[in-house]
């Protein structure tokens, strides 16, 4: 079984994020780029599936040149090879374009299953997995908290507000996973040492068969018109309990229309 895991490099989740004033895109220089945390769960699930059923894991990312660090991290966790889709023409792509570019890049390889995180921690649209499935014409099994494969059939628990649905499809399929699904392994020292020697294929727009007019900031269907710094948190209200703390709390909550 061959599984492709799509991963995104994002600015460090713990760092204060800034936007570039002229393009209103994320200032990627201002913080450490890291592998999107949710994608570690996708990698872990792929590794577990191939450990159980045999096969290999290919990790695919679209991003700037430095995004190969995200690929290396995935390789050090145990993925077998990587694909780095990088081209100046792709800069500023929105979710629509990203899903198109990834779909085209996937056309350069064979696979039985594509696994994604269910959300990237920077833009957080959660759109890419569904859009990608649509573009590939494959079943989408999103927000999976459990994945099982039996022959050519795949079954997932799809997380919902009320619990989960059980969703079944035939391979090949597109899955996005939630954090509940597993506990990602840490790259072992041997894995880190081995990662450097694993093959990473570099693709540009031409090699992936991407129409440059359909990607990049110019082609984006949405534009960021304005951005403002989130106002600093205000001090809040301190309720001193003089025996009537409960009443005061209830008054506060009802004044704010919480109750």
């Amino acid at each position: 079984m061959k599984i492709v895991v799509c991963v995104k490099q994002v600015p460090d989740t713990e760092a204060e994020k800034r936007l570039l004033p002229d393009t209103l895109t994320v200032d990627r220089e201002s913080s450490n780029p890291v592998l999107n945390e949710m994608d570690e769960f996708a990698i872990e699930e792929a590794l577990k599936l191939t450990e159980a059923h045999g096969g290999e894991v290919v990790v695919l990312t679209m991003g700037p040149d430095g995004a190969d660090a995200a690929v290396r991290k995935a390789l050090s966790m145990g993925a077998h090879s990587g694909i780095l889709l990088s081209d100046p023409a792709l800069a500023g792509s929105d979710a629509v374009a990203t899903s198109y570019a990834i779909a085209q890049a996937l056309g350069t390889t064979e696979y039985d299953l594509v696994i994604l995180g269910s959300e990237a921690s920077d833009a957080r649209t959660s759109l890419v997995p569904a859009m990608l499935a649509e573009r590939l014409g494959l079943p989408q099994l999103t927000f999976a908290s459990k994945v099982e494969i039996d022959g050519t059939s795949i079954t997932v628990n799809r997380l919902t507000d009320y619990g989960h649905d059980v969703v079944q499809a035939q391979l090949p399929a597109v899955v996005s996973v939630v954090e509940k699904i597993n506990e990602p392994r840490y790259p072992s020292f041997k894995g880190i040492m081995a990662a450097k020697k694993k093959p990473v294929a570099a693709l540009d727009v031409a090699a992936a068969g991407i129409d440059a007019a359909l990607v990049g900031q110019a082609a984006a269907a949405t534009t960021v018109v304005d951005a403002a710094q989130r106002p600093p948190r205000s001090a809040g209200v301190k309720v001193t309990d003089e025996g009537d703390g409960g009443v005061k709390l209830a008054e506060f909550l009802s004044a704010q229309k919480f109750i």
Binding site: R185, Y186, P187, S188, F189, K190, M193
Partner: peptide, 25 residues
């Protein structure tokens, strides 16, 4: 957990379960 990930053994020889790195690691 540090042991399972192989970080305690980084400097020990690979043929004896280590990582084959050095004391610097």
């Amino acid at each position: 957990e540090v042991g399972r990930a192989g970080y305690l053994g980084v400097s020990l020889p690979e043929e004896h379960g280590g990582g084959g790195g050095g004391i610097a690691d």
